[in-house]
């Protein structure tokens, strides 16, 4: 009997790590008109963002159907495994709801747990990694879930977007609505708090926006882990990661490309920084 950790394709854990740690990733779907792609499987990120920039219409994204989770859970439960399934904020996606419905259907309380991360990208990812680490060192399902929760409490998710357009069109703009319609070019700096997008500030230029992201990390106190997640600007992400080395060792800084589903909602040029602090 083992503890298996399940997540969805929005967690942005690099594929190598997913494979190495035996994490099960259930994909969401991105659709351009009639064509649909499984996030992270059918289309690589570069192709996706090139298409996003060209596309006049916003791609539609959809959560995995209940059945996808049901199949995964049943297989695991039938083998006698226990399952911890950690997902993107229920305020940003219906994925958690799908997973929860599937878990109720499997109906093995006590050996299958579904968790709402109330954040996204590597914010969810770090919780997944904590759960896997706990499970590998012999923790019970309850303890692994606690490890994930403890990580989520210490996680801060920040992002800068080039434009609020994508968040608005996708209906995920949350409280950053108040900053819509700027006639000046501004780069909004946002955070994910209580599962939704909130505005922090706005700056005039991209270098200042990157600086603002760095300052947010700088002011976060002790940091255990960090991730820089980018949509279209890998060099900037690497540069930001290098600067973060003043705060923590390089091997605990992850640079990862953003999945298509979240990418469709934050747009080209967006970048996120996720940190796990040493304090709640």
């Amino acid at each position: 009997m083992a503890i298996r950790v399940v997540t969805d394709s929005t967690c942005d854990i690099p594929p190598m790590l997913v494979q190495e740690l035996g994490i099960t990733v259930v994909p969401l779907t991105v659709r351009f008109g009639q064509e649909s792609y499984r996030d992270g499987i059918d289309m690589d990120n570069d192709q996706f963002f090139a298409r996003l920039e060209e596309s006049l219409t916003m791609p539609a994204t959809s959560q995995p159907p209940v059945g996808d989770f049901l199949r995964v859970y049943r297989q695991m439960v039938e083998r006698g495994d226990q399952v911890l399934s950690i997902h993107i904020s229920s305020r940003l996606s219906g994925t958690y709801q799908s997973a929860l419905t599937a878990s109720q259907e499997v109906g093995v309380e006590g050996s299958l747990r579904v968790m709402d991360s109330f954040t996204g990208s590597m914010g969810t990812g770090f919780a997944v990694l904590a759960a896997v680490r706990a499970a590998r060192s012999g923790a019970s399902l309850k303890e692994a879930a606690q490890a994930a929760q403890d990580t989520l409490r210490r996680t801060r998710t920040y992002l800068m977007v080039d434009t609020l357009k994508y968040l608005e069109m996708g209906g995920r703009i949350g409280k950053a609505q108040a900053l819509l319609g700027s006639l000046l070019q501004v780069k909004p700096i946002l955070a994910v708090r209580d599962g939704e997008i909130v505005p922090l500030k706005q700056v005039r230029t991209r270098p200042r926006a990157l600086e603002a992201l760095y300052s947010l990390v700088e002011d976060s106190g002790e940091i255990e882990e960090a991730a820089v997640v980018y949509t279209t600007t890998p060099e900037e992400a690497q540069e930001l990661a290098r600067r973060l080395e003043t705060k923590l060792p390089r091997e605990r800084i992850l640079v990862s490309t953003c999945c298509a589903v979240i990418g469709a909602h934050i747009g080209p040029g967006a970048m996120g920084v996720i940190v796990v602090t040493g304090h709640p």
Partner: peptide
């Protein structure tokens, strides 16, 4: 309906 349920409204329909 359950296997194909999408979105809150889909889940409710399946229920």
């Amino acid at each position: 309906a359950l296997m194909g349920a999408r979105g809150n409204s889909g889940v409710i329909l399946s229920q």
